[in-house]
Simulated scan of single mutants.
Amino acid sequence: MLAIRLPADVEQRLEALARATGRTKTFYAREAILEHLDDLEDLYLAEQRLIDIRAGKTQTVPLDELMKRYGLDD
């Protein structure tokens, strides 16, 4: 169960979309979350990796070295 408060203009847009399509507001809220969850997880992971790199906890590999290592430098 999830309850969220939306700005009035977003709520109105969601309501209008639901009415126009015969779907529920919940359907569209669920779709929006599912659509963007992967992006949010990727962003979090990238931010954590950047913190680790800056703290010296993770080493980087130059792209040209990586390409050579995997035979992609052709």
Rank of each mutant, 00 (worst) to 15 (best):
residue 2 L to P: 09
residue 4 I to H: 12
residue 4 I to W: 07
residue 6 L to R: 08
residue 6 L to D: 07
residue 6 L to M: 08
residue 6 L to F: 06
residue 7 P to D: 15
residue 7 P to S: 10
residue 7 P to Q: 10
residue 7 P to Y: 04
residue 8 A to N: 08
residue 10 V to Q: 13
residue 11 E to I: 01
residue 11 E to C: 05
residue 12 Q to D: 15
residue 13 R to V: 08
residue 13 R to L: 13
residue 15 E to I: 09
residue 15 E to F: 10
residue 16 A to K: 13
residue 23 R to H: 11
residue 23 R to V: 09
residue 26 T to W: 01
residue 26 T to Y: 07
residue 33 I to W: 04
residue 33 I to K: 06
residue 33 I to P: 01
residue 34 L to P: 00
residue 35 E to Q: 11
residue 36 H to E: 15
residue 36 H to K: 13
residue 38 D to Q: 13
residue 39 D to C: 00
residue 40 L to M: 14
residue 40 L to G: 05
residue 42 D to E: 15
residue 43 L to G: 01
residue 43 L to H: 07
residue 43 L to K: 08
residue 44 Y to T: 05
residue 45 L to H: 06
residue 46 A to K: 04
residue 48 Q to V: 03
residue 51 I to G: 00
residue 51 I to W: 03
residue 52 D to W: 03
residue 53 I to R: 07
residue 53 I to W: 03
residue 54 R to F: 03
residue 54 R to G: 05
residue 58 T to V: 14
residue 58 T to N: 02
residue 61 V to N: 12
residue 63 L to C: 05
residue 63 L to Q: 11
residue 63 L to D: 10
residue 65 E to C: 01
residue 66 L to C: 01
residue 68 K to M: 01
residue 69 R to N: 04
residue 70 Y to Q: 03
residue 70 Y to M: 06
residue 71 G to N: 13
residue 72 L to F: 14
residue 73 D to H: 10
